[in-house]
């Protein structure tokens, strides 16, 4: 007896068994509870990994939420440490700037107006304390933001970016700059650099990296 013969005989028996099943229509309406559960099972087939990840994540979240909430509600120090921990863990592409020298700088002297392509129009300019922002808009609707920041001693700036962005180190007028490039052509890229006087600059816009570098070099 070969395996093929055995298989053929098994199929004969199987088909006979199936022919013996009742042929009349079984008129039964499944309960709403059953239909809900079946929907979940069908979802399990469509997204098996995500289904289990969601369940594990939900369980973990509940556990963390309950235990974490108890600690945070009683300790101010714990709250401060947790916030700092989150910033460090989840902002891997964050740019940390620390200005050790107290240099009085007139940050409001800086502007991209006149240096950027005529396609971009200045929409708004905000000067406030140690920061200046300029907002430009192109005819097509693309936006561009120019930021300038100075800092007093011991202050830190954390600029938070999407973790999926690619980081490149480039040069702007002899100063090291960080270029954050999006995965998608429909999202903005960012260039961040520190000027010779310690001032921090950043330009955010839907531009190629060469365009951002060229624009940055026009600032100082």
């Amino acid at each position: 007896m070969t395996d093929a013969q055995l298989k053929s005989a098994l199929i004969e028996v199987r088909d006979y068994m199936l022919d013996q099943l009742p042929t009349e229509e079984w008129n039964y309406e499944f309960s709403p509870k059953f239909q809900r559960k079946m929907k979940q099972i069908i979802e399990l087939e469509k997204h098996p990994i995500w289904y289990y990840v969601r369940r594990v994540a939900a369980a973990l979240l509940i556990t963390l939420g309950i235990s974490g909430g108890l600690v945070l509600s009683f300790s101010e120090e714990a709250r401060a440490n947790v916030i700092r921990w989150f910033m460090e863990r989840f902002t891997e592409n964050g740019y940390r700037y620390q200005n050790e020298m107290r240099i009085p700088v007139d940050i409001f002297q800086y502007s991209l107006e006149g240096k950027i392509s005529d396609n971009y129009q200045l929409i708004d300019r905000i000067e406030s304390g140690d920061t200046m922002h300029e907002l430009f808009a192109e005819e097509s609707g693309n936006m561009l933001i120019f930021n300038v920041m100075s800092s007093t001693l011991q202050e830190e700036y954390n600029l938070v970016f999407d973790k999926s962005m690619k980081v490149e180190t480039v040069n702007v007028n002899g100063n090291q700059a960080d270029l954050y490039l999006s995965e998608s052509a429909e999202e903005s890229n960012v260039i961040v650099w520190q000027g010779t006087n310690g001032v921090l600059f950043s330009i955010t816009g839907m531009m190629e990296k060469e365009q951002l570098i060229e624009l940055a070099e026009k600032i100082e």
């Binding site: 055995l6 005989a9 098994l10 028996v13 013996q20």
Partner: peptide, 19 residues
Amino acid sequence: IEDFLERYHEGSNLSKEIA
């Protein structure tokens, strides 16, 4: 399962043994 021994008269000898 139905009583194949009684009803299953068709098929090969091997399938009857399987039944």
